[in-house]
Design a protein around this nucleic acid. Structure first.
Length: 265
DNA sequence: ATTGTGGCCTGCCCGC
DNA sequence: TGCGGGCAGGCCACAA
């Protein structure tokens, strides 16, 4: 469930891990290291160094590593899948994570760093769907959703025959939106998730852009992707909070989709 | 390139 | 009380 809202909270948390010398890397789960990254590589790249900046694009948290000469020497990329949590010095910004257990168990620790000062950074992920990578491919990520412009959104959707929802979930074109956010913004915008992406009129495009930006901003202020007005109705047999129509549940773009057949057109 | 499908992973919850 | 199956969603490999 970590979508860009949750990962942004993790990024802010990670600012508390900057400029602290890394004493030890603990990468106990090889499966969790992706795209050829190895535990040995991580130790070589991180031990004795420190992070100089905490960035985010879409659902990726990107920690710039400072080199011996003070110049950036690499990037540690963290991805949280749907059940990944970030903890710095044992505490995190999110207590309850949708679709993940509330508890904390040591066996869910997939990656950890110990700092010289005795603190640490830890990634917990019960379902192991997250990832740790050294120098992740940032160029393949699409436009950051939270700041996308109307013209950029138009170009993302242009000439695509994929369902609107599938396109908005495609991280290679627009980065950061997950299944909960997309259902919420399409519900607010009154757009059918199954519409071909390129079928929106100029007025509908403007409407979608406005709701995309305000949905992200509002749910950020409320504290998470699960705080949308549609969210409590994302269960079987519920009705539209807007007009009371029985909600439709189907698969669009390979994902469970709730929408209102009456006002989403 | 684009789009769709199945699979991965694990914990939880339901019905029997 | 135990067990099996379905489900959740992020993303990747693969097929057409």
């Amino acid at each position: 469930m970590p979508e860009l809202i949750e990962v942004e909270l993790y990024r802010q948390l990670a600012e508390g891990a900057l400029d602290r010398a890394i004493a030890k890397v603990d990468a106990p789960d090889d499966w969790y290291l992706k795209r050829g990254t190895t535990a040995e590589e991580l130790r070589a790249a991180l031990e004795g160094r420190s992070f100089v900046q905490a960035r985010r694009t879409g659902k990726w948290l990107l920690l710039d590593i400072g080199g011996d000469d003070g110049e950036p020497s690499g990037v540690l990329g963290l991805h949280f899948g749907m059940s990944g949590r970030l903890l710095v010095d044992g505490t995190g910004p999110i207590e309850r994570l949708e679709y993940a257990p509330d508890r904390s168990e040591a066996k869910w620790d997939r990656f950890a760093l110990a700092f010289d000062d005795g603190g640490g950074l830890r990634m917990q992920d019960p379902r192991r769907l997250g990832a740790v990578e050294l120098d992740p491919d940032e160029t393949s990520l699409g436009i950051e959703a939270s700041t996308i412009t109307p013209a950029q959104l138009r170009s993302v959707l242009a000439r695509s025959h994929a369902p609107l929802k599938a396109r908005l979930l495609d991280q290679n074109h627009i980065a950061g939106i997950g299944n909960l956010l997309v259902d919420e913004m399409l519900w607010r915008a009154g757009l059918d998730p199954a519409r071909p992406a390129s079928s929106l009129s100029p007025a509908e495009l403007r409407r979608l852009h406005r709701h995309l930006r305000t949905t992200i901003a509002e749910l950020t202020a409320r504290g998470g992707s699960h705080t949308g007005d549609l969210h409590q109705a994302r269960v079987r047999g519920s009705t539209c909070p807007k007009d009371g129509t029985p909600l439709e549940r189907r698969t669009v773009g390979g994902r469970t989709t709730y929408s209102c057949p009456r006002h989403q057109r």
